[in-house]
Amino acid sequence: MSAHRTVGAVGSRALLHLVIVLACLVWLLPALGLLVSSLRPAAAVASTGWWTVLATPFDWTQYTLENYHHVLVQDQLGRSFLNSVLIAVPSTVLPVLVAAFAAFAFAWLRFPGRDALMLTVVGLLVVPLQTTFIPILRLYSQWGLAGTFLGLWLAHTGYGLPFAIYLLRNFFSALPRDLFESAYIDGASPLTAFFRLALPMSTPALASLIIFQFLWVWNDLLVALIYVGGSPGVAPLTVRLSSLVGSYGQEWHVLTAAAFVTMIVPLSVFFALQRYFVRGILAGAVKG
């Protein structure tokens, strides 16, 4: 009996590993194909499958950086990269700062309408951005904010706030009450309590939120498409990439390199700070 059982156990163990490895391959191979193709010469990409390099993966002569030179210089992806940075950094700092103040008020200050406002914020978490585009775009055309960095920064601030407030309020309200009460007894103002107590004690939550918002903005296509469109001086990488897809269609050596350029920053952030990223997602979805 025990022999039979062991064979069965070994079999199901092997099946388990097989399923998991297969799943990992499904997730890994498409991305690997992109990376490999971006490093192969144009003629090779067009004539043979990218997996053919796996026969001799360490034959360095089959790789080239030509495609990256092409997209960065000829297709001006270098400029778009800079735009993405110029868009993402203020669009992260501004909403996190505004949200932190508001979250503190929602968690630790009493004022009329507080609960109603907080409920509004929670409700706004699910409002599709689509319902805001037309009126804001019109406003922007009047104010000359369409096609500007400033317009995008402000829009991302508005759009990022509900999630940021929600996440930080949950974190702030979990801090011990005595702490703030004794600070107030000692004569501290809410401003002091905010900067000296709430913020320093919330570094993990802030880190998660900053990473989350940064990646969201960096990866955003739609908001940028609506408010700045394709103008090369302002358009971020995602917008530029999608227009390259339109103009290059099947020239995969260019497209794969361009796509990888858009991913370098998020991938670095992901590998360096995965822990915080995951924590942010968990905090946003399930409370506590």
Partner: peptide, 29 residues
């Protein structure tokens, strides 16, 4: 002055959320 502090702390967020989410949604409707 708790209410005054609350206005200072939550004011900017209320402004942004109102201008970028609440008002435009009503307008789109």
């Amino acid at each position: 002055s708790e209410k005054a502090w609350a206005a200072v702390f939550a004011g900017p967020a209320v402004f942004f959320v109102g201008l970028y989410l609440v008002l435009p949604t009503v307008q789109t409707l």
